[in-house]
Structure formats: C-alpha cells, structure tokens
C-alpha cells in the first residue's frame, strides 16, 4: 500500500501561483487528476515525481519527502507528457536501459516482461523514431513499468491517441489499479476520466476544487439545479403535475425533442416524486435522463463557481 501525500503544498513561479495550498492523498487504485488547461495539473504531477520542490508544504511517498530523494524512484514509475525519448534506440534497447538504470538483476527479462505488458513486442526492435504516438506512449509505459513500481504517474497519457490505443491504455491502467498500484493520471478529457477513474481530484486555477467519486460530487452540489429531460406518454399532463411540486423549478416543452426539460431544485424529492406521480396518473415514462450529470457539466460548474 503506497500513498502519495500532498500536504498544504503550494508552488509558485515568481508571482505566478501554479499550485495553491493543496492537500490530498493518492492511494491505490486509479485516480484521475482533472482540471482545465493551466490549472496546475502538470506542476502537481511534477512535484509528485520529484522534479519540482514544493515552495511550501510537503509532497511525500509513504511519509518520506520525494524531492531530492532518488530512492523514491524505486517505487515510482513516470510516464511524462513530453514525447521525447531516446529516439535513436529501439524500444527494447530503451526499456532495457531503463531496467539497468534501476539496477535490476536481470534487465533483459524485466524489459521483456514490461514490453509484453504493453503488447509492444511486435515492434520492439524498431527504432522509436519510427513509432506512432500510441506506440510511443506504450514504449513510455513499458519504461515506467519495468521495475514494477507501486506508483504510476501519467501526465496526459491519452493525448493524441486514437480510439483503439485509448481503449488499450485504459484497460492497462485499469489492470494496474486492480493490482493494487497507485495510478494517477491527469487529463482534461472528461470522457476518459469518466470511463477510467472512480476517484477524481479536481484542480482549478491551482486550487483543489473537489475530490471523490464524481457522481457523489455532483450530488453534493445540491444548490445547483439539476436538469432533466423526460419523455412520457402525456408530457402536458406530466408537466402540469410536476410544476405544482416544490422539487421543480421550471419546465419547458421542447418541441424538437418532443420532451420535457425540467429543472429540479431538490434532487432527492424530484427523483422520488417523478415515478410515483407518473404511476398515479397513468403516464408512461419513456425516458428519464439527467442532462447535466456528465463530468463535463460537473466540471463546468466547478470552473465557473
């Protein structure tokens, strides 16, 4: 069980505060680090990777500070955002070199295992410079996995990957998380985070904006109106019943969609009231669809808040 602890950490560059008093703990499993561009995600990851000292506060691996602690790299595997590797090497040479740098007893075998994990054996003897983005990403993954780290840090790992490569990497990360590793990846693509991470950490403008399961986060924000799209056998009647109820703030008939757009102010009351009232009035519900529960809209609330 390896935990990265960030304790009241701030990081500034001159007068620019990139990370502002953040406290979080990243434990085993897959965690998504989410935030708009320029929110401080990379700075945060760089601090966890020991590439950057916190200006104040502490960033630790199981309680030991990471900055200037080369020992920590025995536990940490890093997949950097930048493309560059030793492009003149083949993937096998590159991963073997990484194994040697870790001082592994059998670098060749470790490298082969890592390459197998990312399914890159078929191209391992080609120079990295001939690789596509997705293949590069996998070579980077292999180099990060070669010493079986318990912590995996990935900065924007899905950038530029095509759908297949995306699915493949997601599966890989999921597996890493299931094996009990601490996997942290940053992204600003909500679809990805939504599909991969149950736990999210959101940073906005350097501040720690939210933390936890994103659906629960959404429900925590009870002061937000919840928007629903409802189709039924009798929209007009349903609308007239709903609008009388205190859980509903506004209803609109959407002609093009042939549906009701409803703003609920009380999530719990509304979701319980709706099926009951429909049943009581004999109205058949075809679709009940929360239209702003995707991470995308959760996120836009956090950003504009």
């Amino acid at each position: 069980m390896t935990v990265i602890g960030i304790d009241k950490a701030s990081r500034w560059f001159g007068n620019v505060v990139a990370v502002n008093d953040i406290t979080m703990a990243i434990g085993p499993g897959v965690t998504g680090l989410l935030g708009p561009n320029g929110a401080g995600k990379s700075t945060l990851i760089n601090m966890m990777a020991g590439f950057l000292a916190p200006s104040t506060g502490a960033v630790t691996l199981d309680g030991v500070p990471i900055w200037r602690n080369e020992q920590a790299y025995r536990e940490i595997g890093i997949v950097p955002e930048r493309e560059a590797m030793y492009d003149f090497l083949t993937a096998r040479e590159f991963v073997v070199a990484n194994a040697e740098l870790h001082g592994l007893p059998d670098p060749g075998a470790a490298a082969q295992k890592a390459l197998a994990t990312v399914e890159m054996e078929y191209a391992q003897d080609r120079r990295i410079e001939t690789y596509s983005k997705g293949m590069r990403q996998r070579a980077k993954m292999a180099s990060a996995l070669v010493h079986e780290p318990s912590v995996l840090l990935l900065d924007e790992p899905f950038n530029g990957m095509d759908p297949r490569q995306r699915l493949h990497l997601m599966e890989l990360l999921r597996r890493m998380g299931a094996e009990g590793r601490t996997v942290l990846f940053s992204s600003h693509i909500l679809e990805e985070v939504e599909q991969l991470a149950h736990h999210i950490e959101v940073v906005v403008a350097g501040r720690h904006a939210a933390s936890g399961d994103f659906r629960k986060i959404r429900r925590l924000m009870t002061d937000r109106p919840h928007r629903y799209l409802v189709r039924s056998s009798d929209d007009r009647q349903l609308a007239s019943v709903l609008i009388a109820h205190a859980s509903t703030a506004g209803i609109e008939l959407d002609w093009t969609e042939r549906a009701l757009r409803i703003q609920a102010v009380d999530f719990a009351a509304f979701t319980e009231f709706l099926p009951r009232i429909a049943r009581d009035h004999g109205i058949r519900l075809f679709t009940v669809s929360p239209s702003d529960e995707s991470l995308e809209s959760v996120f836009s609330y956090l950003v504009t808040a």
């Binding site: 069980m1 390896t2 085993p28 691996l61 199981d62 030991v64 020992q71 920590a72 025995r74 536990e75 040697e100 870790h102 001082g103 592994l104 007893p105 059998d106 010493h147 079986e148 780290p149 318990s150 094996e179 009990g180 590793r181």
Partner: peptide
Amino acid sequence: TTAPSGRTHPAGPRLQAAP
C-alpha cells in the same frame, strides 16, 4: 549491478529493504 528486490508484487513498501 547490485541486487535489488526482484519482487513482482508491487504493493508494499520496499524503501527500507531497498539497496
């Protein structure tokens, strides 16, 4: 090359035992 822990199980602190 010194011999580091060749353990395959990722979990568990290796810092103390590590070379």
